[in-house]
Every structure is written in structure tokens, then in C-alpha cells.
Amino acid sequence: MSGRMEGMNVLVVGGGAGIGKGAALAYLDEGASVTVLERSPRHAEALTEETRGRSLRVVVGDATAEPVLTEALEQAVDSAGKLDHLTCCVGVFDHYASLRELTVKELVDAAEEMWRVNVLSTLVAVRTAWPALHEAGGSVTLTLSESAFHPVGGGVLYGSSKWALRGVVQHLAADLAPGVRVNGVAPGGTTDTAFSGLAALGESESSVGTVSGRDQRIAAGTMLRVTPTPADHAGAYVYLADPRASRVVTGLVINSDGGRALR
């Protein structure tokens, strides 16, 4: 039986691990042809091996670089130059950095990196893909965080970048209408996540997912008493990408956080 995304061309920027990978695999399961742009060669290789023989290709490179985005887009579009959906999952984490503990130089350098990766790269990805999305009457899904609604799940740098993306969703929804829908998913704390740290603060890949007791603390902070996995968020991404189910949905953010707001 055909999936609900059969025949669709999808580009997932930052889809090699964690929530982005969960969304990419869900699109694939629903019948889409999926292209993933992933910076980590290790994650790219693992995803390629996991999906061998299926309609998923991986482009390795930095999603903040326009030539790399252009290469990934060329892989993703069909012969008519159409792209049905773009999902953006690129992001860096601030390891809960406190404003009080940063020098002014560290603050400026870290903030510039956070904005460039978490916000500006998303705008560049959408701008690069817009002609192909417009041709297809496609859609965009951005990845926010519970940090875009509450002071949890990161420090002020990470949180403020996700708050900015809330505005990006609504402004782009207005800017790209009526031809392209723009929505977002705001996941809560998630197990099996893969974060990159801020180079400006000397951080590498985050180890927050392996911190003792983290999953239990996340579950305790939600109404549903669960710690989501990447697959738990995937349904929200599939719904927003589905041109039939969400045909009249734009400017919306789905909070897949287990009811954090009600706690």
C-alpha cells in the first residue's frame, strides 16, 4: 500500500542523527524520496548503511554553506526542478551556558555562532530551496524546541535562538504564502539525541543524552510522564509535510513535549 507521501521529494537539512533522522526515516517510510544533508561523516555513513537499497541519499557537508545547500537541493529535486518539502533540523547547543559565567568576548562569539547556525542557516536553506518549493506548491517544517516557550532545555543562547525561530515560522508563513506553507515542531527533551556544541566555547558533540537520570527528569516534567524518542516526534513532521492532511495549515508550531506547558 502506498504511503501518504508517495512520489514526494523531500530534503532534510541536519537529518543524520537524532530528531532529524527520525523525521527523515518517517518520510521514507511514507513513500517519499528523501535527501539528507549531514555534517558528520560518521552519522552520514551510518544512515547510508541503515537505509541501503531504499530511496534515501545523503550529502555530507556544512548546512551553513550555500554551495553545500545548493548541491543537496540539486540531489533532492525532480527532473522538473520541484521540491515538495524541506525540513530544517540543524542546530548547536549551549550546554546550559549562563550569562554570568561568560566573558563579554565569549558571549559575543558564542551568540554569533548560535545565531548563524540555529537561525541564519535556516533562513539560507529556505531561501535556497524557495524556487523549487514554489514550483511544487510545497512546504517547510522548522525544528524549534520546548526552549522556544519555556526557560528549560538549554541556556539563554540556545533558548533565544529557538524563540527567534518561532518568529521565523510566522513571518515566513506570511512571506511565502500562498504558494508555500511554513510550520514548525517544538520537541521536548528527547532521548538518543545528538547535539553539536558551540565551537566558540570549546565544545564538541554534547553528551547531555548520557547524563545519569536525565530521562527520568524529563519524564517527571511532563504531563504524560514520558521521555520522547526521535520517532515520537516524527508523526508531527509527517503530518505537516503531508499536502493533503495539512493543506490549510501554515504558521503553526506543534509542541511535541509531553505536555510540558501544563506542568
Rank of each mutant, 00 (worst) to 15 (best):
V152L: 14
G81W: 03
G213N: 06
P178S: 05
G251W: 04
G153Q: 09
L107E: 08
T128F: 02
V90W: 01
H43N: 15
K21D: 06
L28K: 06
A72N: 03
A26I: 11
K105F: 00
S40E: 09
V59S: 00
M8A: 10
H233A: 13
M1P: 07
S33W: 00
T103Y: 04
A132P: 14
I218Y: 01
M8F: 01
T191L: 06
V58P: 03
V180K: 05
D232Q: 09
A136L: 10
G15R: 02
A236E: 13
L133M: 12
V13L: 08
G61C: 03
T210W: 05
K82G: 12
R116V: 07
I254T: 08
R100T: 13
P67R: 00
A177I: 06
T51C: 15
D109Y: 09
Y239L: 15
V124D: 10
T35P: 02
L11V: 08
V10K: 01
T250F: 04
A241L: 03
A173Q: 10
V185C: 08
P243K: 01
G154S: 10
I218C: 01
S212G: 03
R42A: 15
A125W: 02
L198F: 02
A241Q: 04
V58L: 03
T51E: 02
V168D: 01
T143F: 01
S79W: 00
W130Y: 15
H171Y: 12
C89Q: 05
T122H: 15
T229M: 11
L25I: 13
G81V: 05
G153N: 10
Y96N: 14
T70H: 04
G20I: 06
D242K: 04
Y239C: 05
L83Q: 10
N9T: 13
S160G: 02
K162F: 09
D62V: 13
P230Q: 11
W163E: 07
P187M: 08
G258A: 09
T87G: 09
G179A: 15
D192L: 12
A23I: 05
A132W: 12
V60E: 06
E101R: 14
G138A: 09
G184L: 12
P178M: 05
P131E: 10
L73V: 08
A129G: 06
K162P: 10
R52V: 04
R100W: 10
Y27S: 04
V249P: 08
E113P: 11
R217A: 15
A164M: 08
L176F: 09
G209D: 14
D232M: 11
V238D: 06
A236V: 13
A72L: 03
S98R: 14
S145I: 11
G22P: 13
E135G: 12
E30T: 04
A241I: 07
T128I: 11
S121G: 12
E135H: 12
G184V: 13
P228T: 07
F149H: 15
Y237L: 05
S204Q: 14
V253Y: 02
V58Y: 00
